[in-house]
């Protein structure tokens, strides 16, 4: 039993005391999204509001390694590297990377604070974040009241996702698409209800760092047991 769906784990809720006509309660009470043959279901349009809680969120516009590096510096500022470093302390605002090949059309060398060295590939000059900085795409792992897990991504820029708490609630609205286990939504097909589950956010930075690090390791069979690349 609960009086505020936004603050609890919805998989544990059996009875809701909130206004039954409110969107959040309607979305909670609606039939959950089917999970049968989930990876074969292509481009289905969502036809009812669906309530989910956010189990994990990851910026997929940026490399995991870059994010792990940054998070580790936030957790322990002593880990900052001086060839690309930026922190909040003024005296430590370093010029972290110089781009010698990019003349910036003004004939001078450009400086970058904390841009992503290490994401270069042979086809791109992608030492910076991918695409437009305001259009970061976040991949969310969502959970419904039955405990089913789905992926979701935003197609519109939604700045609030950057600081989304674990356990916060969101409603996927009619019009959103579902494709092979993943919802895609934009500003008009999602409603962020915020809230959080306090316990899930204890040591969040550490948890997210470990999650990303594990993802990195699992993608790279060349890594040794210590997480370093085999030579």
């Amino acid at each position: 039993m609960t009086s505020d769906l936004r603050k609890v784990d919805i998989t544990t809720v059996t009875n809701v005391l909130e206004d039954p006509n409110s969107l959040i309660v309607k979305a909670f009470n609606n039939e959950t999204w089917p999970t049968k043959d989930i990876f074969q279901r292509k481009l289905i349009t969502v036809n009812r509001p669906l309530l989910f809680q956010v189990c994990m969120i990851e910026n997929i516009s940026r490399s995991k390694l870059t994010q792990v590096d940054e998070l580790q510096v936030v957790i322990d500022p002593r880990r900052q590297k001086v060839d690309r470093l930026s922190t909040s302390r003024d005296r430590q605002q370093l010029i972290s990377e110089v781009n010698l090949d990019d003349d910036d059309d003004d004939g001078t060398t450009s400086y970058h604070n904390n841009s992503g060295v290490g994401n270069g590939d042979s086809n791109y000059t992608n030492n910076k974040d991918a695409g437009n900085l305001n259009q970061h795409v976040y991949k969310l792992i969502l959970q419904d009241k039955k405990g089913n897990l789905f992926y979701a991504i935003n197609l519109d820029p939604i700045p609030a996702l950057k600081t989304c708490f674990l356990g916060s609630k969101l409603i996927i609205l009619p019009g959103a698409k579902f494709n092979r286990g993943m919802f895609t939504f934009n500003n008009s097909t999602v409603k962020l209800m915020y809230g959080l589950i306090q316990q899930w956010n204890d040591g969040k930075l550490q948890k997210v760092t470990e999650y990303l690090q594990n993802e990195l390791d699992s993608q790279n069979p060349t890594l040794n047991a210590n997480g370093k690349r085999n030579s």
Binding site: K42, L43, I60, S61, R62, S63, K64, Y124, N126, D129, A130, G131, N132, Q135, V137, K139, Y151, I153, L155, K177, N179, R180, G181, M182, T184
Partner: peptide
């Protein structure tokens, strides 16, 4: 070129790609 640049998730790009084609 795609204005999003690139994404580090195959399923996400595939979903968007299939949506565009569809």
């Amino acid at each position: 070129q795609w204005e999003r640049g690139h994404l580090f998730d195959r399923l996400a790009v595939l979903s968007i790609y299939e949506h565009c084609i569809g």
